[in-house]
Simulated scan of single mutants.
Amino acid sequence: MSPLQPIPDLPPSALPAGWRARTPGPQDVPELHALRARHEVAARGAPTATADATLAEVAGDGAATREHLVVRDASGAARGWATVTDRAAGRVLVAVVVDPDLDDATGDALAAALFGWAQAAGVALAGARGLPRTQLDSGAFDTDARQQRWLAAAGYARVRTWWQMRRPVTREDRVVPAPRPGVVVRRLARAADGSPDERDLVASHDVLEEAFADHFNHHEETFDEFLARLRADPGHRWDHWWMAELVDGDAPVPVGVLIASESLDARGHPVGSYVEYLGVLRTARGRGVARSLLDAVTADAAERGRGYVGLEVDADSPTGAAGLYLSQGFTTSYVTQSWHRYVDVA
């Protein structure tokens, strides 16, 4: 963060009497995680984020690109939590969590204060990058009318719907169907010390950047930003990366990449696999590449004794991805929304 663009404070005058806002630290993680869990249960009936994920965001590897603010009431209890994430040039992720136990008037006022802080913090992040304007990217569960009301009041507009999908995995899924002729699916090559081959990492980044260039809200990410963000996820594992190549010519050509992570339960044990990325170059679409990559991650989950594979898909995607997932046995578990606002830095 540039010293010329400090993250703003939230003054006590913006809060109820006796309430205070400050930057949270590792000691706040258990209470913040409990606050988020209460919010998710109230919004969709079940918690989503794990304690490990909350720790990574606030005090772990994921903290480097995030700024946080926690609001405590006069008794010291955490009642609100806002996070801004420098996701990519021109895109700042905004998350606001408000205690569902608060009455409507207090909750509305606290949400307005936190969204106001997030806007100012997002402007500071964009200013540190030397940008004149940035997107603020937030969201809500499809069933959470309260969060949607707060987003609209803060100047955001609903722009997209996402299906959170899941496919059960059984022992029979351990058998990987053969790809179509000319297609090979493999894990990334590994160096002598066990780390992934840098050429494969670079190729993976290049394939995904090109594959998603025509997708909704894609913002280009540098190679270093891409790796740092994925490695900050507590569920990240190098052996959950797969590459698809066309072998029709003299040398294999990378055309598809799938990156998955471990889905952890409340005790931190892996119970499923989650597809973080699945991208196929436009020139290779129609050759069963995406299906073969899905077969690979499903078989891997079955070999590990996991119960499911999960992913997110754009409900309005023009690529036909939703149809592919439905044909592979995925069903929608719940629905989320993207809400955007654009702000000038000056």
Rank of each mutant, 00 (worst) to 15 (best):
A299W: 00
R267Q: 14
H218M: 09
Q328D: 09
T283L: 10
S292C: 03
T170N: 04
D137N: 09
G249A: 04
H236Y: 15
A64H: 15
A153T: 03
A64C: 03
R291P: 03
Q148L: 05
D73Q: 12
D300N: 04
D239Y: 00
A120N: 14
D206C: 08
L264E: 09
A49G: 12
R267W: 12
H219A: 15
V159H: 04
A140I: 00
P270C: 01
A89K: 12
D142Y: 13
G130V: 07
A118C: 14
L294R: 02
T143W: 07
A53Y: 07
L114F: 09
M243T: 08
E198N: 07
S195I: 05
A315Q: 10
L188R: 05
G182C: 13
A191G: 11
R158Q: 11
R20L: 07
R158Y: 09
A211S: 07
V253S: 14
D314Q: 10
P6K: 09
D137R: 13
D99P: 02
H218N: 13
V183Q: 00
T161D: 12
H39T: 13
D144S: 14
D9L: 10
G116Y: 04
R133V: 15
S317Y: 10
R44E: 10
R171G: 14
P3H: 05
A121G: 03
A178E: 15
V183M: 06
G307R: 09
L230A: 11
A153P: 02
A14I: 10
V94P: 01
D9V: 12
R287D: 04
D61L: 15
A296K: 01
A157P: 02
G256N: 00
Q337V: 08
F330T: 01
V345D: 09
G272N: 05
